[in-house]
Nucleic acid binder design. Structure first.
Lengths: 191, 191
DNA sequence: TGTCACATGTAAGACGTTACATGATTTT
DNA sequence: AAAATCATGTAACGTCTTACATGTGACA
């Protein structure tokens, strides 16, 4: 459902499936990843539903491109979606599930190592967000006041990712500290 | 895949599908929601794979229950999963996608209202986490030192939810402040 | 008598992934 | 000549949701 709307949103400028995949990789997929094959199937469905139309176009290089653009109905659908109340999706976290049951291993050193791995990945993610924030936006409040409404909205979505990631990094640190303390105090772990 | 392992984890105590659904509702589904129908199908598959076995048992009230328990192979699978490195799932956020394209509406008041709705839901979620933290755990560091390893692990997963939720609440506040300032300063919005 | 909690499932479909298949053009 | 990039798709499979179907026993 949301992939549909995201594609409509991106298609304010006409684009091919391949182009759209590139757009996902440059700043969409931190809140909505999508595979090319999925994009192609969805585009065809949206066309059959009358929300998109497409034309074959020769490519500067490579085979010919199928370029999609919004129909009036597509534009209406997009607006309708944007006016709807915030849509919450289910969230699933396998690594939290692993941690939930990890006492089962009776090996606090393993839990500690697990958390340290988590921490490293989160730190890299936070760095990534920060670099984007510094590059794409100048990120100070003054320059934000001069940004367009579009830039403002994009900035907000990026901040959502950054703040969430940062909180998770902090959680790792808190958890690691707790584990270290327990290991220091507690009985030595098996083997 | 992870639903499989979560069921194995919960089945250290034998339980029926119905029982398991109740367990999900009491503290699993903030990191992994699951429908009854999905649980039943997965249990049957796990049995056919030899990771679970089941027996029919009369119920105190209502129809007879199919009670599942771990086989040796199931126990091994669970341990193997717990030893694997942290598994990251794709994350998808429709409401972030909505916000990303929302400049399209050219109506900052709408964005503001959207964020305020978001804020209310997050605040309720944070409250929920806090209540659980206070009830189930006494939540002070001292009492944590006396908790079992199992309690410690469960505490950590709960903190993950709480800290993430809180960060998102803060993000709402930051975003709302930014929007308010822009509306105050900016050109009046249409209609 | 009705409805709630207990209890188990099936069917259809939406959404997504992975692997596979094909082929052109440009760069190395 | 090979590899990278451009470009589009199909097939098989896995997971999850929603709606439907069925029935018991307890209690108000």
């Amino acid at each position: 459902m949301s992939l549909d709307r995201i594609l409509l949103g991106l298609l304010r400028e006409p684009a091919s499936g391949y182009d759209l995949k590139a757009l996902f990789e440059s700043g969409i997929d931190f809140f909505w990843p999508a595979e090319l094959s999925q994009i192609y199937r969805t585009l065809r469905r949206l066309e059959s539903e009358g929300l998109l139309r497409s034309t074959q176009q020769p490519s500067a290089r490579g085979p010919s491109r199928r370029v999609y653009s919004l129909t009036a109905a597509g534009r209406r659908e997009l607006q309708e979606w944007l006016r709807r109340e915030p849509v919450f999706d289910d969230e699933r976290y396998s690594y939290v599930a692993q941690l939930f049951f990890m006492a089962e291993l009776d090996d606090l050193e393993h839990t500690l190592a697990f958390l340290e791995q988590l921490r490293e990945k989160r730190a890299a993610q936070v760095d990534g967000f920060r670099r984007v924030e510094e590059e794409v936006f100048r990120s100070t409040d003054e320059s934000l006041d001069e940004a367009s409404d579009e830039e403002l909205h994009r900035h907000l979505t990026l901040r959502a990712g950054l703040l969430t990631s940062s909180a998770r990094l902090q959680w790792c640190d808190e958890a690691i500290a707790l584990l270290r303390r327990r290991i220091r105090q507690g009985k030595p772990h098996p083997a």
